[in-house]
Simulated assay, not measured.
Amino acid sequence: MKKILAIAFLTLTSMSMQAQEELTWHTDMSKATDISIKENKPMFLFFTGSDWCGWCIRLQKEVFKTPEFIKWAKESVVLVELDFPRKNNQTETVKTQNAQLQQQLQVRGYPTVWFVEATKTADAKVNLNALGSTGYVAGGPQAWLSGANQIIKKK
Rank of each mutant, 00 (worst) to 15 (best):
I4Y: 13
L5Y: 11
A6L: 15
I7N: 09
A8H: 11
L10A: 08
T11P: 05
L12T: 10
T13P: 01
S14Q: 06
M17V: 02
M17K: 03
A19E: 04
Q20S: 02
E21G: 01
T24H: 10
W25T: 01
H26T: 03
T27E: 10
M29H: 03
S30A: 15
S30F: 13
S30T: 15
S30L: 13
K31W: 03
K31T: 15
K31F: 09
A32Y: 02
A32L: 13
D34F: 09
D34C: 07
I35Q: 14
S36C: 15
S36N: 11
S36F: 12
I37P: 07
I37H: 06
K41L: 10
P42M: 10
M43I: 12
F46M: 13
F46R: 07
F47Q: 04
T48E: 11
G49W: 00
S50N: 12
W52G: 07
C53D: 13
C53K: 06
C53L: 09
G54S: 10
G54Q: 10
G54P: 02
G54A: 09
W55L: 09
C56Q: 00
C56M: 11
R58C: 11
R58H: 07
Q60M: 08
K61A: 10
E62P: 09
F64P: 01
F64I: 02
F64D: 00
K65H: 14
P67N: 02
E68Q: 14
F69N: 00
F69P: 00
I70V: 11
K71W: 10
K71L: 05
W72V: 05
S76G: 05
V77E: 00
V77I: 10
V78N: 02
V78I: 13
L79D: 04
V80S: 09
D83M: 06
K87L: 14
K87G: 12
N89W: 15
N89R: 15
Q90H: 13
T91P: 01
T91K: 02
T93S: 11
T93K: 07
V94R: 02
Q97A: 04
N98P: 09
Q100K: 14
Q103H: 09
Q104Y: 08
L105G: 11
Q106A: 15
R108F: 09
R108T: 14
Y110K: 08
V113Q: 01
V113N: 00
F115P: 02
F115T: 01
F115Y: 03
F115I: 00
V116S: 00
V116C: 03
E117K: 15
K120N: 14
K120S: 13
T121A: 11
T121G: 12
A122H: 11
D123N: 14
D123T: 13
D123K: 12
D123Y: 12
A124F: 12
A124R: 13
V126G: 04
V126D: 07
N127P: 07
A130L: 06
G132M: 01
S133M: 08
T134V: 05
T134S: 08
G135Q: 05
Y136F: 12
Y136K: 08
V137E: 06
G139L: 04
G140M: 05
G140I: 04
P141C: 09
W144V: 01
L145Y: 06
L145T: 06
G147Y: 06
A148L: 05
A148G: 04
Q150Y: 03
K153M: 03
K155L: 03
